[in-house]
């Protein structure tokens, strides 16, 4: 009896918490709608959250195990591969993408200049990772990738994992801080293959 009451109480509490969570989500959506104004140069579609962004926001990046599994499975299913299916591209091209931090900035105040946009987006990896040991201006939101291929191996499994991780970080880690670079259209499949080569190739400065 006591047990049952406790269970009932727990259920009541969790559903209340869930309700409060949904309520807050709705309020945040209203807040966002009231705080960005549509107009030239403002891509409002960027404010629309997908299921993954919603869940990670509501749980502060700490979803329940069951929801985390569903999330990673869903994200894994989004992964696309280059037309020629070659997951190891040209590491030199990859190096440029790893160094580049350019792209995707919009609005009317300081949008990326159209002329420069033609060069495409960078991967912005140094914002969060140490990569080539010679580059000291490296952030630490993510783990160091220095020596990545040498340490982790360069076999087929690692190639596949690395490509997929870069394409969609959340296919492996639910609510990761790392942007879903391929899925969100920041880098194209061929470019991700170049970055994969940069991380894994024995010739790459990453592994020297």
């Amino acid at each position: 009896m006591r047990n049952r009451m406790m269970i009932a109480a727990v259920i009541a509490c969790t559903s209340l918490a869930v309700l409060a969570g949904e309520n807050m989500q709705a309020k945040i959506e209203k807040l966002v709608a009231a705080s960005f104004k549509p107009g030239e140069g403002q891509d409002m579609s960027r404010l629309v959250q997908d299921e993954t962004q919603k869940l990670c926001s509501a749980t502060r990046n700490n979803p329940k195990a069951k929801d985390a599994d569903a999330l990673t499975a869903r994200e894994k299913a989004t992964i696309k591969y280059p037309a020629d299916n070659k997951l190891m591209g040209d590491w030199k091209e990859g190096e440029k993408l790893v160094k580049g931090g350019f792209g995707m900035r919009i609005g009317t105040i300081e949008p990326d200049p159209p002329a420069k946009q033609k060069g495409g987006n960078g991967g912005n990896c140094y914002a969060c990772h140490a990569v080539d040991a010679k580059e000291v201006a490296a952030g630490n939101l993510g783990p160091s990738l220095t020596g990545y291929g040498k340490l982790r191996g360069q076999g087929e499994d690692m190639v596949k994992y690395t490509y997929e991780k870069l394409y969609n970080a959340q296919a492996f880690v639910a609510c990761s801080s790392m942007p879903r670079l391929g899925h969100n259209g920041i880098l194209k499949p061929e470019q991700i293959a170049h970055v994969t080569a940069y991380l894994l190739s024995p010739e790459s400065p990453v592994n020297k």
Partner: peptide, 27 residues
């Protein structure tokens, strides 16, 4: 709540960068 709200092509929220000690973006 909005501080933790993730949106945009980078999947960022404010908390991505401002909720832990000793973190850096580049330097």
């Amino acid at each position: 709540a909005y501080f933790w709200n993730r949106h945009g092509p980078m999947d960022f929220s404010c908390a991505t960068c401002h909720a832990e000690d000793g973190k850096r973006v580049r330097l």
